[in-house]
């Protein structure tokens, strides 16, 4: 995130984001028409959270681009080394051994690049955790609207939320055994 984006975020506008801004949860008319401070604040926080989500998704994709590039460079290096192995001057056992070691190190780099890409799943999980917070903020906002009988309720369509996201960690496959057991039980029941 650069300084202009931080400034925009602090101002609540998120203008630095290239992603289209989601519609405000509190329509401007509601704020202008005497909506309470609480209503304005919740709309402001929702806009901020949307900006954070958009910026982190964009930055995550930049990291993915870099990882992709590293993967491609290593693949190119591996090809060059393979060609070099066939060269007459590279047939000495010591040279072949060294080349194999370089190839093996290259493979390790590629594996680590793939591992790093897989770890980027944290971005989607964090986004969904924020989405859950937004969901609760909207409920509070709508409750205040009902209570005061003024302003408009949230209308912008949001993704559905995961009710277990708060417990979701970043360890891959932490729920695999549980999900597999439920799937197996369902299939057995269906067969029986």
């Amino acid at each position: 995130m650069d300084q202009s984006e931080i400034d925009a975020l602090l101002a609540g506008g998120g203008k630095g984001s290239k992603k289209p801004e989601p519609p405000p949860a509190v329509p401007p008319a509601a704020s202008a028409g005497g909506g309470s401070v609480g209503q304005d604040a919740s709309g402001h926080v929702i806009a901020e959270l949307d900006t954070v989500t958009a910026v982190t998704e964009r930055e995550s994709n930049k990291v993915m681009d870099q990882l992709d590039m590293i993967g491609q460079l290593v693949a190119r290096q591996q090809k060059l080394i393979t060609d070099m192995m066939r060269h007459e001057g590279a047939q000495a056992p010591g040279v072949q051994q060294a080349i194999h070691e370089v190839m093996s190190a290259g493979k390790e780099i590629q594996d680590k690049v793939f591992e790093a890409m897989d770890l980027m799943q944290f971005q989607d999980i964090t986004r969904q955790k924020l989405e859950r917070i937004v969901h609760h903020l909207r409920q509070i906002h709508d409750y205040i609207v009902d209570l005061l009988g003024t302003g408009l309720k949230s209308e912008a369509e949001r993704p559905s939320i995961s009710h277990t996201i708060a417990q979701t960690g970043t360890t891959p496959d932490e729920n695999k055994a549980h999900a597999d057991a439920v799937v197996e039980a369902f299939k057995s029941k269906k067969k029986g």
Binding site: D118, I125, A179, V182, V183
Partner: peptide, 26 residues
């Protein structure tokens, strides 16, 4: 990311053939 048992069952009833919870390994 939906990991609750009732979510998994609901998805299977809707016609999903299998189910993976995020984060997952390749």
């Amino acid at each position: 990311t939906n990991a609750a048992k009732e979510d998994i069952v609901e998805a299977l009833q809707a016609g999903v053939n299998n189910y993976v919870v995020k984060p997952f390994t390749p």
